[in-house]
Design a protein around this nucleic acid. Sequence first.
DNA 1: GCGTCTATTCGACCTTGGTCTGATAGACCA
DNA 2: TGGTCTATCAGACCAAGGTCGAATAGACGC
Lengths: 217, 217
Amino acid sequence: MPAKPIIIADDHPLFRAALRQAVEGAAPERKIIETSSLHGVREAIEKYAPGLLCLDLHMEDSDGFAGLISLRQERPALPIAIISGSEDNSVIKRALRFGASAFVPKSLDVKDIRQAIAAVLDGDVWIPAAVGDDTQDKNEDAAERLVTLTPTQLKVLMMVQKGLLNKQVAFEMSISEATVKAHMTAIMRKLDVRTRTQAVLAANALVVDSDAPHDDA
Amino acid sequence: MPAKPIIIADDHPLFRAALRQAVEGAAPERKIIETSSLHGVREAIEKYAPGLLCLDLHMEDSDGFAGLISLRQERPALPIAIISGSEDNSVIKRALRFGASAFVPKSLDVKDIRQAIAAVLDGDVWIPAAVGDDTQDKNEDAAERLVTLTPTQLKVLMMVQKGLLNKQVAFEMSISEATVKAHMTAIMRKLDVRTRTQAVLAANALVVDSDAPHDDA
DNA sequence: GCGTCTATTCGACCTTGGTCTGATAGACCA
DNA sequence: TGGTCTATCAGACCAAGGTCGAATAGACGC
């Protein structure tokens, strides 16, 4: 069978080059497409029907884990390897929960990255060696529910999370306020909350840097 | 002059004992009062007019930095040394911004803690050696504004941040919903936002929320 | 004591949020 | 082809959020 191309999506040109090197080591015969935005990723997926996506979480338009969830829903069969500067345990676990096939910290050297890519191309799930199994997963429910949101619902929730009014969301998306309200009703039903404030709290599981509140009293 | 007593406030009895030892080393002649809640702290302040408060951030009723801010407003002259399991840079910097006189990580040994206490009793500000100067201070404004909130406003904001309705806040505080709304208006004015969702976003600067330091496998 | 300030309290009033009904249209699947 | 799911929207309706003006009470300066 013909080897499908690989997409590399990262903000940073230098790291993109390094990643390309690692990927070429793992799959020399594959075509590689580079991009630096979620938008570019979607275009590339449309155009090249890739077999693997290496995705940075910190791109301008990726909105934390929301981009990952959307892509997974659009192409469930496409394996996604998350590339991230973070090595935080909760970030790694959330990435996997949201459907990533691998988590590759940027601190890894080329050899290890190559190994990770090879594993994913082989159909495996790859994670860094030292991932603890702390079972303080109370955000598990929230994560479980967030993946059931449709891409449009996710987009609405992202805007609400930034503090926008329904009216403003409607304007940004060029739809009516009534539709935004309908989306919010559906979102809150799925997240099992009753107000937008609580929806925002639940959506904090999507934020990469400072993670959602948990009571480790 | 008579040496004013010292209050030690920490959830953990064992650590409270260790802290007492360190404090006694730094100020042998001082009376020491122990407590394990914010409520206990207030009582002790009322009763003993202390010269120093050693405050843990992770107590049941301390609501992150909100407790620190309240106490600072009630007793601006009382130096407060923050005791915390976290050593995260942003936590330390926020503690100082919110008026702490020292930041003492629990990982320090008794000798260093004694030194920190001594420094604060001397009127100095004490921080751990390795505090970087990473200039990712975008919460600086938010922090600046949060300290202008009155204790009541802070209390309301804490509840709203947990996702409670105005009606629920009113019930919890035994005041009318109209009053809660009035507080919210004042809060939003001070924080320079226009909706409760945005107020909750701003209030996130109060969340301590660091990763559990013990389970780094 | 007397003005002034601010925090807290509240009711009247308007705006935004959220539900429900019901409807249209496209995508996808069986 | 029919059934399900999603996205879109309108209008009515009620609940929640938010502003305004105003009253009270304590703190401060003078």
